[in-house]
């Protein structure tokens, strides 16, 4: 687009710019705040390292202290106090396979007061 088409607007903005140029504040360099921010980062990094070291030490040391009290589950057995309730009369018959010509022992049912668990 030719420049003269917008000449009216350019002149208006040029007048505005001339006015603004008269009130421009002098150039002043701001004080840079970089150093304190760097120090802050260093402290944060140091704190993170400290936490990591202490954490590692705690985990490893507490692991050692637990060794004497560790329970080897594979070497232990456990019996429930109510296991005897599962021992029913005639359990030998249930556990054996019946066959022809094999004498089957006659089982006399004991009274509940005298259960013989040695069958």
């Amino acid at each position: 687009m030719p420049e003269h088409v917008d000449q009216d607007l350019r002149e208006k903005f040029a007048r505005l710019r001339a006015e603004v140029d008269d009130i421009v504040p002098p150039f002043a360099m701001p004080a840079v705040r970089r150093a304190p921010r760097r120090v802050g980062h260093v402290w944060a990094a140091a704190a993170a390292v400290l936490v990591a070291v202490v954490g590692t030490w705690y985990v490893t040391s507490s692991g050692e202290s637990q060794v004497p009290y560790a329970i080897d589950l594979a070497a232990t057995t456990w019996e429930a106090p109510t296991d005897f309730l599962l021992e029913i009369p005639g359990s030998a018959l249930l556990d054996s396979i019946p066959g022809i010509g094999i004498e089957v022992p006659v089982i006399v049912e004991p009274t509940p007061q005298a259960i013989d668990t040695s069958i």
Binding site: P25, A28, M29, P30, R33, R34
Partner: peptide
Amino acid sequence: DRDMAEDVLQESYLKVLDG
């Protein structure tokens, strides 16, 4: 707004200088 513009300009210069 002149006051605001001066503040913004200073803050912008700071951003450029401190990275």
